[in-house]
Structures are given as C-alpha cells and as structure tokens.
Amino acid sequence: MVSIRRLGAINRTYRHLTRYRQILRILFKYGFHDLVDYLHLDHYLETGLQMISRKPREQIFRYSRPERLRMGLEELGPTFIKLGQLLSTRPDFAPPDYLDELRKLQDNVPPFSYEEVQQIFQEDQGKDPTEIFTDFAVTPLAAASIGQVHLARISSDSLKSTTRSPKNQKASKRDVVVKVQRPGLESIIEVDLEILLRSPP
C-alpha cells in the first residue's frame, strides 16, 4: 500500500513539475533562456523539457530586457509580481532602468477577466454578482497582485441582515467597493514558495 505521506509527496512533485514547466515556458517566451541556463533551472525538467519551445517570438525583442522582465513577472503571477515589487525598492540591487520598469508592478498589474470574477462568486457564494448587488461594474476600478476591486451598489434591504437599521428606514442604495481575490491565489503562492525555498540539489 502507498502511504498518505507518500501520496502527498507525489502530489507535490507533480504540482512542482507542472509549475516548473510554466515558469520555464514563460522565461523562454520572453527571451530569458540565458537565465534558465545560468540558474540550471532545466535540471528540474530533464524529461519533457523538449516539449517546451526555447525560441521566443521575434516581436518580443521589440521590448527592452527590463520591459520583458516586468512582462514575464506579470504573467508568472502574484508571487513573482511581489518579488518584482520588492526588487523595485532596491536601488542597491538592480540598475535604474530595471527599477523604473519594476515600479510599474506597484500600480499597473493586469486585471483578470469578469468571467473569472463570476466563477469566483459562484464558487464562494453560489450566486452571480448581479444577484447580490443591484449594480456591479464589469471593469475593475483597480488591480493588484493579490486581487482587484470593483465598484458596486447594494440595496439597504440586503444590509439589514448584517446591520441594525431603524425599522422605519426607507429603502435606499449604497455604493460599495468589492475586493475579489485572484483565482487560485493560495495554491499558486503555496507551490511557488515551495519551489523558491527548495534547496538546490
């Protein structure tokens, strides 16, 4: 019989390999094959590495290397965006052109789609945002590495269950800001931290 501990180790290994492939694919996509070779990242994918194209699209080189680094960190997700944000505050560690580009990660993170917002609401609340709020903005007000915020409007009737309102209070609507966590955030950060903290072989 395979022990529960063994099954857990197999599951972590599979998650790590899947994420390693994603990381390598994105690094190659943005022209950082030299970084992969320097850090020996391909060691973790001795089998199946041939399935990942090492050749970036030619148009990617229209962008500078700092721009490509910022774009790659954005695509890698919240853990790496946070890392880029941290690096943007370290002039002792990164050259000025990299610092300027990484600072864009502080307030210029791409949002995720409204379809994903709807799916998150369905999973957490069992309802669409429009079933909870009288109005819900499809386009987010702002986006960050952890989540994004949407403007919405909620009726006072919906608030009565959570607030003590006078019985004679007239029905009204209140503008609110709703923060939605990025999909799969916890599992992505967990795997990324396991990878980053893993001792080299």
Rank of each mutant, 00 (worst) to 15 (best):
Y44E: 12
Y44T: 11
L45Y: 04
L45N: 09
T47M: 08
L49C: 05
I52S: 02
I52K: 05
I52R: 05
I52W: 03
S53Q: 11
R54V: 14
K55Y: 04
P56D: 10
R57L: 04
R57W: 03
R57S: 08
E58I: 11
Q59S: 12
Q59M: 13
I60T: 10
F61I: 02
R62L: 11
Y63N: 07
Y63C: 13
S64H: 13
R65E: 01
P66W: 06
E67F: 03
E67N: 13
R68S: 15
M71Y: 10
M71C: 09
M71E: 06
L73D: 13
L73K: 05
E74F: 14
E75Y: 11
L76G: 13
G77W: 04
G77F: 04
L83D: 14
L83Q: 03
L83M: 12
Q85S: 08
L86Y: 01
L86Q: 02
L86G: 04
S88H: 07
R90L: 02
F93R: 05
F93H: 14
P96A: 14
D97H: 06
Y98K: 05
D100P: 13
D100F: 10
E101M: 03
E101T: 14
L102C: 13
R103V: 06
K104I: 11
Q106V: 08
Q106K: 02
N108G: 11
V109Y: 03
V109E: 03
P110W: 09
P111I: 10
S113N: 01
S113F: 00
E115M: 06
E116C: 15
V117P: 03
V117A: 00
Q119E: 01
I120V: 10
I120F: 04
I120L: 10
F121A: 05
Q122N: 04
Q122H: 01
G126H: 08
K127Q: 09
D128P: 12
D128V: 02
P129W: 07
T130Y: 07
T130K: 07
T130D: 04
I132Y: 09
I132T: 14
F133G: 00
F133A: 00
T134L: 05
F136N: 00
F136P: 00
F136E: 02
F136C: 00
V138W: 08
T139H: 09
P140H: 09
L141W: 14
A144E: 14
A144G: 15
A144C: 06
I146H: 08
I146L: 15
Q148H: 12
L151D: 10
L151Y: 07
A152K: 07
I154M: 03
I154A: 04
S155Q: 06
S156P: 03
D157Y: 05
S158T: 09
S158H: 15
S158E: 07
S158Q: 09
S158C: 12
L159T: 00
T162H: 02
R164K: 01
R164G: 00
S165Q: 11
S165T: 13
S165K: 11
K167A: 09
K167D: 12
K167F: 15
Q169N: 13
S172R: 12
R174D: 02
